[in-house]
Design a protein around this nucleic acid. Structure first.
Lengths: 344, 344
DNA sequence: GGTAAAACTGTGAACGTTACCGGGATTTTA
DNA sequence: TAAAATCCCGGTAACGTTCACAGTTTTACC
């Protein structure tokens, strides 16, 4: 790292000199420490404003051994879920005065997790939000072990692990709601297009579908199941496969709205009318789903709120730890709800 | 900022002690400085690995007066464009070894820009990518003035400003392509649903639509125009308004794909067949648009690549500046292309 | 009016790294 | 063979802030 000739920035020392006080006093003013007389405080603040002094966050972090930065590990913002989570995280972080350091993981590279952990530690983040959907037991443990000594972690949308704080939407319950709705409407041969089965959330949604069928004493066999990848394209081909391997199919639970869109499209191509010949329910309630043809019945969940909660939880723990009280983040599950429209 | 009792981290001093060399030599090894013998280098690296030493990025930034961090100012990841940009930025940043500090602006708060600038400066970012779509002339200048002395800036999707580097997609040309396609297909009464007119990119798309009509000697009047807000809902209500105020309407250019979806929905409600009774073209080519009914003809642009380019440009300038050669970022425009499907 | 407590302010040493400069050992050049 | 260049390496002083502690002044109370 070569030195770049930037204009000298104003330092705390200059402010102190101009205000006729010590550096320490200026520091106290900046940090809203109570032990400063109103008069001194006012004088210092006047100088700060005049000189346009900005405390150097880097130096602050180094001296105080803690930064104003939260690490966010994520991936795939093109998808609705991650984008929503990140937005919520950002909103809440800004409101509470935290900065965000973004890290993307490439799950295909095994040692990418180490790189990310190293980066987070090296920047001395005060807390970490793991918003990437998947982390298997062993990797989770390894990551936890690396980060935990330095900063608390909150995981999002992941399989609950003992000893870790995981914030989730109840995917299983949501899928059950969706499927039960189909059953209520009289459909009896209900297939599913799942998300990538490597993902816990996708597996949970599949379980919810099974729950509903089981409690209605309807059979569920593997020919009723097709695995998708969250994309509309996989919903489209998914339905094609499904009708082929399970001809009596009369309804589909698509594990997200994009795939549901693909299903609607394929149904159209096959000449099947929705909801008459085929019931369809999605998951996520993306803003567009109300404008599908027909408008999609789907499961709504509050991912934005989940992201906000993650930050708040981290904030709580960090504050407590700084006050000397040991605290750990706790897990939490948000309940989704069914949004009935026209597709079932 | 109170001190938290975390386990002591391994410092460069301990590595130096264990390896029997000076702190400076370890620093040289970390930074791949050439002036170290292979033998010493190997010994130091062995110790680093054994002690699991991680250089403290904060201390490094402070000492070197430059960080490994790029600032990204953005907003609205739920929208396709920003999400795509951010993904591209992240990919390229990771490949080049940069970290990202994320900042969201609330455009409704006037002084939010100052807050963001202060944050970026305080964290000593090496460069800034402004990915929030809009910054008016004056604010742009103010922001520029605050940041520029500290770090180079690249703006994305914004009105080109003299003296600033702006990376853009040619929105006007893309919109022209879309509209010309409608004209070629024989539509003559072509309306438009614009994006928020406060946004330059939305205004450019409108201009492209005008260009096409003008060069085909077709009239364009204000009753052919409705302003939307990028959402499917606004596309839906937009078409309703449009047919009311301009009954002879036979085609619509929707300024993004979400609004096009809304248009398709409204057309269906009105009993108008697409593309028979009504031609529709969108903009963005979101992955779902191929699965609309009918499949949407739209304009494709490479926002992911635009994000990557922004990082590369910044990287180039920073490198050059550190090498002592003054350099400035340059502007650039990417050309979009038409994707013909079934909706026109 | 004296003492103890409270309120305020300053001093010096961290925090973990890199920049700058200087010096010895080794090789190259004239 | 001496001088000059090159290669390695180390010591010291930053970078801009906060922390711990030690002062000094003011206030409160009997």
């Amino acid at each position: 790292m070569a030195k770049v000739n930037h204009p000298r920035r104003v330092t705390i020392r200059e402010v102190a000199a101009q205000a006729g006080v010590s550096v320490q006093t200026v520091s106290r003013v900046i940090n809203q420490h109570p032990d400063v007389s109103d008069e001194t405080r006012a004088r210092v603040q006047e100088v700060i404003a005049r000189l346009r002094y900005r405390p150097n966050g880097i130096a602050r972090s180094l001296a105080a051994q803690s930064s104003q930065m939260l690490g966010v590990v994520a991936s795939g913002f093109q998808l609705f879920g991650p984008a929503q989570l990140l937005t919520g995280i950002e909103q809440q972080a800004t409101e509470l005065g935290w900065h965000l350091m973004l890290q993307i993981v490439d799950p295909s590279k095994t040692n990418d997790y180490d790189r990310v952990a190293a980066n987070l530690i090296s920047q001395n983040v005060a807390g970490v939000i793991w918003a990437y959907p998947e982390l298997t037991g062993e990797r989770e443990r390894a990551f936890h072990q690396q980060i935990q000594p330095h900063a608390p972690i909150v995981f999002l949308s992941m399989e609950p692990q003992p000893g870790s704080a995981v914030l989730n939407v109840d995917n299983r319950y949501g899928a059950r709601l969706a499927t039960e709705h189909l059953i209520e409407r009289g459909y009896r041969h209900i297939g599913i297009i799942t998300g990538p089965m490597a993902l816990w959330s996708a597996r949970q949604r599949k379980l919810g579908w099974q729950d509903a069928l089981a409690s209605a004493r309807l059979p569920h066999r593997s020919k009723q199941i097709v695995e998708g990848d969250w994309s509309a394209a996989s919903g489209d081909t998914g339905l094609m496969k499904l009708v082929e391997q399970f001809p009596q199919l009369d309804a589909v639970f698509a594990s997200n709205d994009q795939m549901a869109l693909g299903v609607l499209k394929a149904a159209d191509c096959l000449g099947r009318r929705v909801p008459g010949d085929l019931g369809v329910v999605g998951f996520d309630d993306i803003p567009e789903s109300a404008f599908f043809k027909p408008a999609l019945t789907t499961v709504h969940h509050e991912l934005l709120e989940l992201g906000r909660l993650a930050v708040r939880e981290l904030h709580r723990v960090i504050q407590a730890q700084q006050a000397g009280k040991p605290a750990t983040a706790t897990s939490l599950v948000l309940q989704p709800r069914l949004v009935v429209r026209e597709s079932a």
